[in-house]
């Protein structure tokens, strides 16, 4: 074969986001560094190529859908909701999800309180639950402004809060990671957990969005 086509990606991505054209573009200095570091780590016996592939697969499996399933359970099961708010790591593990060493805190949105999560110092995110953070979460704009003018930032995401809602911003400065349990939308009585989970977006679990209406 001329070359291995698994390194090539063509066409639109499943999520609708653009792929980076890095695989076929000219080889960059930093890509050469990645290849060199990976090869040296494997050759020196620190890890195997199979372990690297398995880790990529494990991260690919972590997506906002997992968090959405947790939220849907919390909406449906008061005991689970109480446990989630008391000890989110234990509740999520009890729910059957592998979240590695994650120390998770769940914060709940109500008709009086809206929670918003940021990491001003770097890009801390509950990746072991939700997958990798979106690009905007890591930008100077979000990191700088979410702690000073959260309501203005929320408006840039299209979220206008009622006047009597208190905003609680959570800066992930150390060892905890945060997930927002969005408020359950009206008109969802009697819906199955599976149907409820489809209303829970990634942004709703960061706090920059609300759960969708059915």
């Amino acid at each position: 074969m001329p070359h291995d086509h698994h390194d090539h990606q063509h066409g639109p991505s499943p999520s609708g986001h653009p792929y980076r054209a890095d695989n076929d573009g000219p080889l960059t200095y930093w890509q050469r560094m990645e290849i060199a570091v990976r090869e040296l780590l494997v050759e020196k016996g620190h890890m195997t190529a199979a372990e690297i592939s398995a880790q990529i697969d494990a991260m690919d499996e972590r997506s906002p859908a997992r968090g959405a399933a947790v939220v849907a359970r919390a909406w449906s099961d008061p005991d689970f909701r109480a446990q989630l708010l008391e000890d989110a790591s234990a509740a999520v593990r009890g729910f059957g999800l592998d979240i590695g060493p994650l120390n998770l805190i769940a914060v709940e949105n109500t008709d009086r309180v809206h929670n918003l999560v940021v990491c001003t110092l770097c890009s801390c995110y509950p990746r072991d639950l939700l997958g990798l953070p979106p690009d905007w979460y890591k930008t100077r704009a979000y990191r700088s402004r979410a702690v000073f003018e959260p309501r203005k930032v929320l408006r840039e995401f299209g979220v206008e809060l009622p006047a009597d809602t208190t905003v609680r911003v959570h800066d992930s400065t150390a060892d905890m990671r945060y997930v927002v349990v969005p408020a359950r939308p009206p008109g969802t009585e009697g819906m199955t957990e599976e149907a409820l989970a489809r209303l829970v977006t990634r942004d709703a679990m960061i706090g920059t969005g609300l759960a969708k209406r059915p």
């Binding site: 000073f148 959260p150 609680r168 400065t173 150390a174």
Partner: peptide
């Protein structure tokens, strides 16, 4: 407490983990 009069809303809150 953090931003003084420049705060968007005085009684909104900010939680952070501090050693």
């Amino acid at each position: 407490e953090i931003w003084g009069a420049a705060a968007e809303r005085q009684d909104d809150t900010l939680d952070a983990e501090i050693y």
